[in-house]
């Protein structure tokens, strides 16, 4: 197998990994709201314990 084949296989593998991450992110609602996270970023206080994952 030529080096090109190895690179191609590696590229396809990485592509699938990132595609998987993308699908996971979208399914978890990461792309649902693009405005509120930007608002949260400017709240200069500690994260809200009520909204932490351990409560769900």
């Amino acid at each position: 197998m030529s080096v090109f084949g190895i690179l191609l296989a590696g590229g396809v593998f990485l592509f699938l990994v990132f595609l998987g991450i993308l699908v996971w992110a979208i399914r978890n609602g990461q792309m649902d709201d693009l405005q509120t996270p930007a608002e949260r970023a400017i709240w200069d206080d500690k994260p809200d314990p009520g909204n932490s994952d351990d409560r769900t």
Binding site: D32, D33, Q35, T36, G50, N51, R55, T56
Partner: peptide, 8 residues
Amino acid sequence: FRADLDFG
């Protein structure tokens, strides 16, 4: 437990 706002 949670209140997740979607501002938009």
